[in-house]
Amino acid sequence: MAGHNKWSKVKHIKAVVDVKRGKVFSKLSKELTVAAKNGGSNPDLNARLRSAVLAARAANFPNDNIDRAIKKGTGELEGAAIEEITYEGYGPGGVALMVEIVTDNRNRAANDLRVMFDKNQGSFADAGSVAYMFSRLGEIRIEKGSLTEDAITELALEAGADDVQDAGDDWLLYTAFEQTFHVASALREKGVTPTSQNLIYKPASTITITDVEVGRAIIKLYDVLDDYEDTQAVHANFEIADEIADELS
C-alpha cells in the first residue's frame, strides 16, 4: 500500500492498539521461536533473530520471555512444534492478500483461513497464485520529527536502503530483506532510531478502492485475517481512495 495513503496510517494505528492490548506479545514470541528454529540461537549469526530481539525489547517484552521463546525454537525447552506458512487469497474488488501464519497445526490453520475467506467475500488461493505480485522486503519506519525529505533520503542511501516513502507522520524505508537489520543498525549509529523494522511482502502495484461497500468489505476481511490467533502479518495490494476514506473511518 502506498505510504501516503490513509489506509496505511489506519493499519499502523491498529498495530499500535494491538501493542496496547498485549496481542503483540504472542506474535513477538512466535517470531523469536521461528527465527531461532531457522537460524540458530546466536543473534550475532542470525540477523532475523537480532531483529526479533530488538523488536521484542522495543515493546518491553520481558527478557525471560525472550530467552524462553528462543529456547523453544532451538529445542532446549519443550513446546509444540510450530512452523511458518504463507497463505494466499483474493478479497473483494480483486484485492490480493498474503497471510503469514505461525502455527502448530497446519491443517487447522488452512481450514480456518479458508472459512474466513469464504465468509467474507474472498477466495482462498493455491500457493503461487498471488505471490508473484509481491516482493519480500524489509520495511523500516522512522518518525519524521524534523527530518526533511532530503535529509532522510541522504541517510537512507548512506545506510543502504533502496527506497523512501512518505507515510504521513513517518518515513518508510525499504531494503532488501536480508539487509533489514544492517540498515536499521546503520541508522541507529547515525542517531536515528527506527520505531519499527519488519519483513514484509510489498505489492508491485496497487488497486485503488473507490467504492465504499467494497472498501468496507475488504477492510473487514483484512481485520478478520489479522485478528486470527496464528496470524503474524497480513499484506495486501489495495489503497483506499481519499474521497471514501472518511466514510470508512
Rank of each mutant, 00 (worst) to 15 (best):
M1S: 13
A2R: 14
A2G: 14
N5C: 03
V10N: 06
V10L: 10
K14H: 04
A15C: 02
V16K: 13
V17S: 05
V19T: 09
V19K: 11
V19C: 05
R21K: 14
K23L: 10
K23M: 10
K27M: 07
L28D: 06
S29R: 05
K30G: 13
E31R: 13
L32D: 02
T33K: 12
A35M: 08
A36W: 02
K37Y: 08
G39C: 09
S41I: 05
S41Q: 08
N46R: 08
R48Y: 03
R48A: 03
S51Y: 01
A52Y: 01
V53N: 00
V53Q: 08
A55D: 13
R57W: 01
R57M: 13
A59T: 05
N60Y: 09
I66R: 02
I66C: 03
I70G: 03
I70N: 00
I70F: 10
K72W: 05
G73D: 03
G75V: 07
E76P: 00
L77I: 03
G79S: 06
A80M: 06
E84A: 13
I85R: 15
E88A: 02
E88G: 05
G91S: 07
P92L: 01
G94M: 02
V95Q: 03
V99S: 02
E100G: 10
V102N: 05
T103I: 04
N105E: 04
N105L: 04
N105R: 04
N105P: 06
N105H: 08
R108S: 07
R108E: 04
A109T: 06
N111G: 13
L113G: 08
R114K: 15
M116A: 14
D118K: 10
K119R: 15
N120T: 05
Q121Y: 12
G128M: 10
G128C: 09
Y132R: 07
F134N: 04
I140G: 00
R141K: 14
I142E: 00
I142C: 09
K144P: 08
G145R: 11
G145Y: 09
S146N: 13
E149L: 12
D150I: 05
E154Q: 14
L155D: 00
A156N: 09
A156L: 05
E158D: 12
A161C: 07
A161W: 02
D162L: 15
D163R: 13
V164L: 05
D166G: 07
G168Q: 06
L173T: 00
T175Q: 01
A176K: 09
F177K: 06
E178N: 09
Q179G: 03
F181Y: 15
V183G: 00
A184R: 06
R188H: 04
E189H: 10
G191W: 14
T193I: 11
T193H: 10
P194D: 09
T195G: 13
S196Q: 07
S196L: 01
Q197K: 12
Y201I: 02
K202H: 14
P203Q: 09
A204P: 01
A204I: 03
I207T: 13
I207G: 05
I209W: 06
T210K: 15
T210R: 14
E213R: 10
V214Q: 12
L221I: 07
L221G: 01
L221E: 01
Y222W: 12
D226W: 02
Y228A: 11
E229H: 06
D230T: 01
Q232T: 04
I240C: 04
A241N: 07
A241W: 04
A241F: 09
D242G: 09
E247P: 00
E247R: 08
L248W: 14
L248H: 08
